[in-house]
Amino acid sequence: MVMAGQRRPMGPGQAGFWRSRQGLLVLPPLIFYLLVYIYPLSRLWAWSFFDQHFTLEFYRELFDEPAYFKALTNTLEISFLAAALSLMLGYPMAYLMATTSPRARNVLMAFVLIPFWTSILVRTFAWIVILGKNGLVNHLLGRLGLIDEPAKLLFNMTSVQIGMVHVLLPFMVFPLYGVMSRIDPSLVRVARSLGASPRRAFLRVFLPLSLPGIGAGCVITFLLAVGFYVTPALLGGQGEITLVMLIDMMVNTLLNWGLAATLGIVLLVVVGIIFAVFSSLLGVERVTGK
């Protein structure tokens, strides 16, 4: 993961020298962050409280209007589900990659990476073609005689999840694979020799040791899902309006920048709380430290 393996060996006499140099390395990203993240965020924060004068009007409006709250719960629901589905699909994939031969691993790795070569927009439109009324899936199901009339696969939660999980899967697989590949295979073997069935060896040894990967993968996919715009906008229906889509509407259509800023701040706070709870449950120290 990101935190691991950044320590450099340094000569005892040169500790200060190296420390100052390393400090300099942090400077460019720090400036970048200040400019493009911290500054706009603080402006956003200010906007949410000002409409000519200081006001709590935007926050009141937010809590008064059920549609906004619905968009928030929609966002969280979609993101949770997408992270959970990514985990269910990604865990076996990563497990296979971590335990198979190097050659098979490369093939699997390619399968995970190839979708990256295509833009999200193109992939999302592709799903519209595939899942549509006369799309590939309905065509096949019809030919097999499994359905009489086309199933409604598009513009609902199903299509949103298919599209999002497709995009998110690599972000689940890679942190999982990273952690799993560092699990010593002799640990599972020794568990077997000590009397554990394959299932128990997995549950008591491999699974607990892969928890840091599960934590990292879930956090990354969840956070990415919260910020998704294209996929839910194109593949979702009326019931799948997310906070990000709402913000886009505020800014581009209604020109209500104050409310847009307020929605953004609320989303940030909610996600921050969820992240804090999640990482304390899984133990970020165990996730990052070792």
């Binding site: 010593d184 640990l187 073997r189 568990a191 077997r192 020799s193 000590l194 009397g195 008591r204």
Partner: peptide, 27 residues
């Protein structure tokens, strides 16, 4: 392997890192 009742000691020890010493031996 789990039915052979054979103790195995590997060169790299292969201790379960997430278990205490007692939990390892109790496994």
């Amino acid at each position: 392997p789990e039915r052979r009742n054979i103790g195995v000691v590997f060169q790299n020890y292969a201790l379960f890192p997430h278990m205490s010493v007692a939990e390892n031996v109790a496994f």
